[in-house]
């Protein structure tokens, strides 16, 4: 049986405000899922909830990894269990070199039982692997000496997220708009790299991927097995690759008219968000 990440009837609130209102989604390792939907529909919220962000409160429903509930696990434990997210807006950590950051992260994720203070993976071995991965991603080795996301361009940040994924070798990866900020050539390279990384995962199995995107480019080398459309905090429709094609060419008009209730919630959320600004 393949390993699975299963989300059942997930309700999530931020600052007491309901955002996700019953999301169902099952991802098997080896599958590519595309998640699309208008701005503010709740896509990043789903990713943050899966990662265990403390501000995203799960009010109902379940998230299970291979049948085991992960809601009680903190973000660190989820990462060590093999779940990864490339963020839409990665955080900068000034003063911490990319290489040092990743060496510690890689050690922890590869040795989930590691206790604080125990040995890190040997420097030489780590350097070698990091350099190889950076070459694959056509990144300048100088990058490893820069501070994590500090002063990175939008595109550099997204590449750095892919590099982290390559080093951490997760079982399941959520890529939240990893294509935004990348130039045409970089998106193509990213798409190829993601496909390659998905092949060489921990335990020999392939990675399960959830690609959140508004475009088609990342999907070029990662043909979705399933496409989901989120609206008003729910997945309203699931299809194959043809659904993705429809959405990035024709937009959400058909979806909106087919799901008036969710579209109304969506509009309400948008207005509330606009009013809050």
């Amino acid at each position: 049986m393949p390993e699975t990440l299963q989300i059942t009837n997930l309700h999530v609130a931020v600052e007491g405000k309901p955002i996700l209102r019953g999301v169902h989604l099952t991802i098997n390792r080896g599958e590519v899922h595309a998640l699309m939907g208008p701005n503010g529909s709740g896509k990043s919220t789903l990713g943050n909830a899966i990662m265990g962000h403390p501000n995203y409160e799960v009010t109902e429903g379940a998230i299970e990894l291979n049948g085991q509930d992960i809601l009680a696990m903190d973000a660190s434990e989820r990462a060590r269990a093999g779940i990864f997210m490339a963020f839409q807006r990665p955080m900068a950590i000034p003063g911490v070199k990319m290489a040092d950051f990743l060496r510690h992260a890689t050690t922890n994720v590869r040795n989930p039982q590691r206790k604080e203070g125990e040995e890190l993976i040997p420097m030489r071995q780590f350097r070698k692997e990091l350099t190889a991965k950076m070459e694959q991603l056509k990144m300048d080795v100088e990058f490893a000496r820069r501070y994590v996301n500090d002063g990175f361009s939008g595109g550099e940040m997204k590449r750095a997220e892919i590099l982290q994924m390559a080093m951490l070798r997760p079982k399941f990866a959520i890529l939240d708009e990893t294509d935004s900020g990348l130039d045409v050539d970089a998106v193509k390279l990213a798409s190829q790299s993601i496909a390659a990384i998905a092949q060489e995962q921990e335990g020999g199995a392939e990675m399960g991927i959830l690609i959140i995107t508004h475009h088609d480019k990342l999907l070029e080398y990662n043909t979705p097995d399933f496409t989901h459309v989120m609206m008003g905090g729910r997945i309203v429709e699931t299809g194959g690759v043809e659904l993705a094609r429809e959405l990035y060419t024709s937009g959400y008009d058909r979806i909106r008219s087919s799901y008036p209730e969710e579209a109304a919630v969506e509009d309400e959320m948008q207005q509330a968000a606009a009013a809050a600004v």
């Binding site: 990662m51 660190s76 997210m85 000034p94 922890n108 604080e116 982290q164």
Partner: peptide, 29 residues
Amino acid sequence: DQQQVFYAMTRGYTRQEAVRMIVEGFFQQ
């Protein structure tokens, strides 16, 4: 910054390790 702590935790850092790293980064300048 709790967002930095969360980010580091999604990379496998424990909360303690994340805070310690952020503090060391603060002094790195």
